[in-house]
Design a protein around this nucleic acid. Sequence first.
DNA 1: CATATGATCCGCT
DNA 2: GCGGATCATATGA
Length: 213
Amino acid sequence: MSPARLSRAFYARSATEVAPALLGQVLVRALPDGTRAAARIVEVEAYGPDDPASHAFRGMTLRNAAMFGPPGHLYVYFTYGMHFCMNAVTGRPGEGAAVLLRAGEPLEGVEGMCARRGRDRILELCSGPGRLTQALDVGRTEDGADLVNGDRVWVERGSRPEGIGTGVRVGVHETTRSWRYWLEGNAFVSRGRPGPPTRTRVPRVPRVRSTTP
DNA sequence: CATATGATCCGCT
DNA sequence: GCGGATCATATGA
């Protein structure tokens, strides 16, 4: 029997419940050529309603429409002029909550991932939200894809994680919510300053060579 | 190893 | 115009 897909009910909870529950599960992508690519989810971030950092905070637009749809669908957005990021929509329809999939550990289809990424080091294939989408060939076309009944992307039940670390979300200027979750000690977690909050850094004054008087 | 910078689109102010 | 839920590369310690 084939591995169990996560159900609609799994996603129909708050983003902060779903996010840690996604750690250790297996993200599967059925590629256009009939092969599979898969990665174990090792790092995620929750984005909820009433969350200024969320794309849904200022209401529904064409771009974030998938976030306001039913849970268990994919929300894919384009950013920085060159990268895609993918989220699993959570909560209730109309709520606007999602979990950003930030990093994974390559399990299947590694050769194809290397080709799409243009890298051969396993650690650099899925360790970051933009890297993950590129490795799994997820883009605009997958925005809104159904993770529960669809045939392009889904999540299968994986292994129970041992330890979970939490911290501030990457690139979010807000320190109250610790909504980033990762598998403690896992080498495939992206660098986004895990562990203790950023230590205070003294800005280095650029050294200026004095011009001859 | 660390910080710095350029790439390159698009949604929103 | 601005700056972003980013990444690869260059450069300096």
